[in-house]
Structures are given as structure tokens and as C-alpha cells.
Write a protein that binds this DNA or RNA. Structure first.
Lengths: 225, 225
DNA sequence: TCTGATTATGACCAAAATATGAACAAAAAG
DNA sequence: CTTTTTGTTCATATTTTGGTCATAATCAGA
């Protein structure tokens, strides 16, 4: 429930303002982009905190479909497309690409808010309070980790790194990806920093530290086995 | 994973038939109910196999909203409401109650199918992408290889070389091509290097190592046979 | 069958990547 | 301001690897 960020992508500043005002009133944080390119840049930078994207279809430089496609290559973030009164053609096109919802302009702000909330509820719904990875239990809300029932203290970085790994269970993550997602995208530190944290986490996880596998030449992977 | 059952609730048999025909054509199983009461009965009986519900709003006996409310007390099954061209009032009302989607009558069957599939995709957990080459299974995300179900450890080069070979299944690859694609362009090493890695891979693949064929004077080819 | 060319194989080692411990710096807490 | 915790860097140890080389096996053509 806390701090939901919405990325609004529309070339008309009037439209952005309208949406922004309503959503801010509802307590959401807002990011804005005025065209497709900006949107992609925005998304890369703030990927971790963006909960949902409102995406206009008609834009200069890079249209909504292109943006959608690009984002879908790496992310499943909910996306609502803002369209002129829809042609069926477009809708079909979009659903295949992974559009979550359509809203036709002009729309009432209430509808907008309702749909945003419905989608957020839906997406949030399927992540339970507690996630159990073979005995490593993470309470996302409480930001706590227990291993075989025993509480384990994790520092901020350790928690975030572990979280990132388990969120991508069974997926080999490159060092780059890890840096970009757990650290700031512009972090230029020592490449041994990750190792160092991995070491600490493994140690804290005890036996289950081996769930974090090193993928030589690539990075790390979390896998329960 | 397959065998998705859709419950269609509408009092007009003509409408049910229309929807049924389209969805069956797409391979879905269908259950039908002609009014709200029947719908609830149906749902109770078949709750475990129903993946999604298409629910008409206007019905005799018990209308769609009532059905929705009742079902939501015990279940989160995705529900698409079928409405007459919508008044905003209704939509808002429904989102609060947990409607996943609206479709306004009249609608095209294509839109219907697209939305059903979109929702199912969303609810269903993502299955990972596995490629199977005659018992050699490659999980690209996890960067793992299994042979006849048994995990096989591959080093970076081995994995990349194997991947390159299977990506070009049935195509004879020259040593040059292999070097340029798996190694860096400017690699000027021993020409025996490839052989050496091929050997290791074949060994790790066991019997199935013979899928990697030697093309004398040319290079290698991966072929399942 | 013989022969030169090509590929397979096993052993070896240097280079590369990672693990680790300790020291240091920076931030947060008191 | 001092203490404590956290994050990063660095030097060193350890592990894995990729590549080389020598030798054996295989192949294709004469």
C-alpha cells in the first residue's frame, strides 16, 4: 500500500497534469515522460519503483506500441494504454503484447483511478505476505528474513540483494543486472562489492547459503535445491 | 496447464451459444448458466475447475452484481462482466467489488477471446521457457542444461558453444563461424581449442554427445537423430 | 593398404574469476 | 561528538576455466 509510483507518458502536458493531479490526490507518487524515448529512459532509471504505467498511444518520436514492446522485453509491470476511442484492431494488437487495460480518451478521472486501483489490487494480490524459498522465508512488508524459523538480521543492501535474487528465482543474473537493480544504475564501484555482499548473505543463511549459486563468468542465481 | 474451463452466465441462449462456439474453437472447456442462481450452483459444484467467469449483468432472478458479490466472498476467480454500453457508475461499482474486466455488448468475438486470454495469462504463473533437443533440455534463463532429466554442469564456454550449436540445429557450422560467434572476433588461438571444448561437451552429454557431429574439413553440426 | 591430413583425447598450466578476511570510509544512531 | 552499524575497497587465497600441446585415433583419397 505504501508509496506507489505511477509513470505517466503523454505528449500533452495538459493531459499529464490532469492525470497527475488526480493520482497525487489519491496519494500516488508520479513520474512523467513527454514522449516514448523519455519514457524508456525513465523506466530504466526507476524500474524498481514504478508500479504501473499509463501510456499514451499517439506520441512523437516513439509511439506507445513501441514503448510497450520494449518494456515488455524485460518487465511485466502493469501497463494501461490511453487511446483515442478504440479501434478493435489496436486493442487486439495490444493484448497480445501484454497490455493490461485500455482507457479511451476522453475518460473521467474517476474511471482512471478506479482502473489503476483495480490493477494494483490484482497485481499485489498474487504476491502473498510471506514467501518461502525452501525454508528461507521473506516477509516483504516487515522486511524480515527467517531461516528455518529463526530470524536473521539483514542490512539494507543484504536484504535488497537477497530479495532481488529470490524475486528472480531460477534465473541467472548477470553482475550488470544486479548492479543496475540493487544499486543505482550509475554505480561505478568495485566489482568485488557484489561478491562481498553475497558472501555475507550466504554466511547468514547458513547451510541454505548454497541456494545462491555462483554462475562463473555470468553472475549469480538463486535456486532452491 | 491445459484444459481451461470458462463459465458463461447469460440469460440469452443465443449469446451463450455465440460465446461458447468461439471459446470452444480456441480449445476451452465450457460451462453454462442461464441465470444468477444457476450460476452460483454451477460455481459451487465446479469451483475447482473453473478458470474464469463471463458474467452478464442483466439477468432475471439474480443479477450479475449479486452473483459477483457472492462469489467474491469465497473466491478470487477472474470475472469478466458483460454489460450493455457502460455507464461509468456501474463500472466504478464493479471495480470495487473485484471485477477484472468489462466487455460491452455488442462485442466482437475476437475482443472477447483476446481479453480472456490476456486475463488468463496474467493470472497464470509464468512457465519458463525450456528448449528440448532430443532429451537435451536447455533452460536459457537459468543457464542450465539437463540430459534425460539429469542436470549437467557446463562452464561458460561450454554452455555458449552448445547453445550456439543447438541454435543452429541441422546447420553445418564452420570453425570460423564458431570462433567468431562463441569467441571474440579477434581470437587467434590454437585451432584445437574448439575440438577440446567439443570433446568436453560430448563427454558431458553422454550418449547424446553424438548429436554433435564432426563435419570433416568444415566444422561441426548439431543434429538430433 | 598406405599416407597425409584432420580430429579426438588426456594431461597440464597459466590466466581469469571468485571467495574471503581485514581494513577503511561513510552513514546512522545515540 | 562519539559510537555503532553498514557499505565498500583492497590484498590475498582459492577455485575454476580456457587454452595449449603432445600423442593417439580416424578418415579420405591414391
Amino acid at each position: 500500500m505504501n508509496d506507489v509510483t505511477v509513470l505517466i507518458v503523454d505528449d500533452e502536458s495538459r493531459m499529464r497534469k490532469l492525470i497527475r493531479d488526480f493520482l497525487m490526490q489519491k496519494g500516488y507518487s508520479i513520474l512523467e515522460a513527454a514522449d516514448g524515448e523519455e519514457a524508456l529512459k525513465m523506466f530504466e532509471e526507476h524500474q524498481n519503483k514504478i508500479s504501473i504505467i499509463l501510456l499514451d498511444v499517439m506520441m512523437p518520436k516513439l509511439d506507445g506500441w513501441s514503448v510497450l514492446r520494449q518494456i515488455r522485453q524485460t518487465s511485466k509491470v502493469p501497463i494501461i494504454m490511453l487511446t483515442a476511442r478504440g479501434e478493435e484492431q489496436d486493442e487486439l494488437f495490444g493484448f497480445e503484447l501484454g497490455v493490461d487495460e485500455y482507457i479511451s480518451k476522453p475518460f473521467s478521472p474517476k474511471i482512471l483511478v478506479a482502473r489503476v486501483e483495480a490493477i494494483l489490487k490484482r497485481t499485489k494480490g498474487d504476491e502473498k505476505e510471506l514467501k518461502d524459498y525452501g525454508g528461507i522465508v521473506i516477509d516483504v512488508e516487515g522486511r524480515t528474513v527467517t531461516v528455518d524459523g529463526k530470524n536473521v538480521e539483514m542490512s539494507l543492501r543484504e536484504y535488497e540483494l537477497l530479495k532481488y535474487l529470490v524475486d528472480n528465482e531460477n534465473i541467472a543474473l548477470s553482475r550488470d543486472k544486479i548492479l543496475n537493480n540493487v544499486w543505482n544504475y550509475d554505480y561505478y564501484g568495485d566489482s568485488r562489492t557484489i561478491d562481498s555482499h553475497i558472501k555475507k548473505i550466504r554466511h547468514k543463511l547458513g547451510k541454505k547459503g548454497k541456494y545462491i549459486q555462483t554462475m562463473r563468468g555470468v553472475g549469480y542465481k538463486f535456486e532452491v535445491k
